[in-house]
């Protein structure tokens, strides 16, 4: 069955998108202990910013991407200031609800500004699909996979090899001690939000050429990214990547061989199974109680 490798490549492509959003989710979770339920709206906003740059401002593709990503950086900063920062000393619940509210706000602001019609981006590279050993490959999926892999590598180098990366890691592990040794925690959190919004924007720009996206696309992506982080092991970067790729492949295969209408359900069923059997995920954050 020559369709199988093709399905897997497409699955990895979509899975890379989940993984990118999941990475942003994990970074924010690690620095703030908050799960951002509006994370899925980051790719949506990024994709629409690019649509506006290309079709309304008439910019060239490369300039549009730069402007859209810069816009995402600003968006991430504002998001932190308005949604997270005022609630930083409260329990997880108000912050969680606040991000849900922010998601409704963002989606409907875009809706009011742009309208309900779905949009699509032109391909990033003007290449046609080609055959490799009987397998048809869509270059867009390859672009997604290559860019995602490059970003993951870059992020790894940043966190492991730079002093700033270490400072952010320290902030994520213990905010109070980080501030005690002179790390400006407030800025580290700000930086995390900015970076994670840009990451989301990249995901949106990558996914734009392969699907028509609409205002609500973020919710589905966010939920799957969230599922990916739990499957991979909450708070673990490797887990987020593995979980995202795994989900992308599973739902593509499920849709092809089992049922198209229930495509979205596969991700949730896998998640459910994990929560029941292995709630700490593959790379396992230990859920320990302390008296």
């Amino acid at each position: 069955m020559s369709a199988l490798p093709q399905l897997i490549v497409a699955g990895i492509g979509m899975g890379s998108i989940y993984a990118l959003v999941a990475l942003g989710l994990v970074l924010i979770y690690r620095t703030t202990n908050v799960v951002n339920f509006a994370q899925g709206d980051f790719p949506m906003v990024g994709a629409f910013l690019l649509v506006i740059c290309l079709f309304h401002a008439g910019m060239p593709y490369w300039a549009g991407i730069l402007v859209a990503l810069a816009g995402m950086a600003v968006f991430g900063g504002l998001f932190n200031l308005a949604v997270y920062y005022p609630l930083r000393n409260r329990s997880y619940l108000p912050v969680l609800i606040s991000t849900l509210g922010a998601s409704i706000f963002v989606q409907n602001t875009v809706l009011a500004a742009y309208g309900p019609q779905p949009a699509n981006l032109p391909p990033l590279l003007p290449l046609r699909g080609f055959q490799v050993g009987g397998v048809f490959l869509d270059p867009q999926y390859l672009v997604i996979i290559v860019v995602s892999a490059a970003l993951v590598l870059l992020q790894y180098l940043f966190f492991e090899k730079t002093y700033l990366g270490k400072k952010i890691q320290a902030t994520a592990q213990d905010k109070e001690t980080a501030s005690l040794i002179g790390i400006p925690v407030r800025w580290m959190i700000m930086l995390t939000f900015v970076y994670s919004a840009v990451l989301g924007g990249v995901a949106g720009i990558l996914v734009g050429p392969i699907m028509y996206f609409s205002i609500g696309m973020g919710t589905a992506i966010a939920l799957k990214a969230f599922a990916a982080t739990i499957i991979g092991g909450f708070g673990d970067i490797r887990g987020a990547i593995l979980g995202g790729l795994g989900l992308g492949i599973i739902e593509n295969l499920g849709a092809a061989y089992i049922s198209v209408p229930y495509k979205d359900a596969f991700a949730f069923l896998v998640l459910f199974a994990f929560l029941m059997v292995l709630p700490q995920g593959i790379f396992g954050e230990k859920i320990a109680e302390k008296a």
Binding site: Y163, K166, K167, Q169, A170, Q173, D174, E176, T177, A178, L180, I181, G182, I183
Partner: peptide, 18 residues
Amino acid sequence: RIFSGLTARENVLLGAAN
């Protein structure tokens, strides 16, 4: 309160974050 996910050396280096 040592950062448990970093090495001993990295922890020491972070002391200069001020």
